[in-house]
Design a protein around this nucleic acid. Sequence first.
DNA 1: ACGCGATATATATTCAAAAACATAACGGAT
DNA 2: ATCCGTTATGTTTTTGAATATATATCGCGT
Lengths: 114, 114
Amino acid sequence: MDKRINPKLRILLGAEIAIGPGKADLLDAVARTGSISAAAREMGMSYRRAWLLVDTMNRCFKRPLVEASKGGSGGGGARITEQGLDVLARYRAMELKAAASVAAEMREFTQLLA
Amino acid sequence: MDKRINPKLRILLGAEIAIGPGKADLLDAVARTGSISAAAREMGMSYRRAWLLVDTMNRCFKRPLVEASKGGSGGGGARITEQGLDVLARYRAMELKAAASVAAEMREFTQLLA
DNA sequence: ACGCGATATATATTCAAAAACATAACGGAT
DNA sequence: ATCCGTTATGTTTTTGAATATATATCGCGT
């Protein structure tokens, strides 16, 4: 409902497959919380949705970004893999670099907005 | 349904407001065809949708990007304004520059995809 | 005067994505 | 043996977006 523009530059790879702003944030939340359900809660989405997104990511890349286990002390959990950390780092780096490369142009551009 | 990834880097400004890949293409089509309905046909979308997108763009910027007129020889039409050309050029330039800035990283990144 | 093709807008319908709900399996802790 | 929280997955319901449909207006050409 906010008429204001989100000033964040958004970089997507492909047709919302593989990874994008949302999936990157989710991956980050899984890494921090150690579980898909905690990440989902934190991001205000259903567990099912979060699980599906993680599943999509896992299947889009050659090697899984997240590994999960059920049962156990805390009921189970999920860990980000080496590959996952790598992908997240690369994505964030690209996001930053791309945004920085057009920061000046973007500042001028936003002046044209109402 | 295509499992393959669209390799095009996509740059959006804000939460699909103001402008993005789709609106830029539409703006371009309107500029080329001289009418919203022709642009809609060309892009395979309903006239209503195209009109709404154009309307959103017009209201998001300080000055309209497209000016339309009804009636007349061909029934009417739509013209891209100076401002519209400017916005489109700036957007395309940013798109290109941002993509170029991370082209090498993107090449490496896509190697990780299945 | 009338028709044509386009803009402009309202309303209704369709359809797919998201959410909600449900359930099974797992395995350590109590 | 039971309980808990989580993963994993199926089914149903809801919601929202896109489309379809309809209507009014405009103004030039015939």
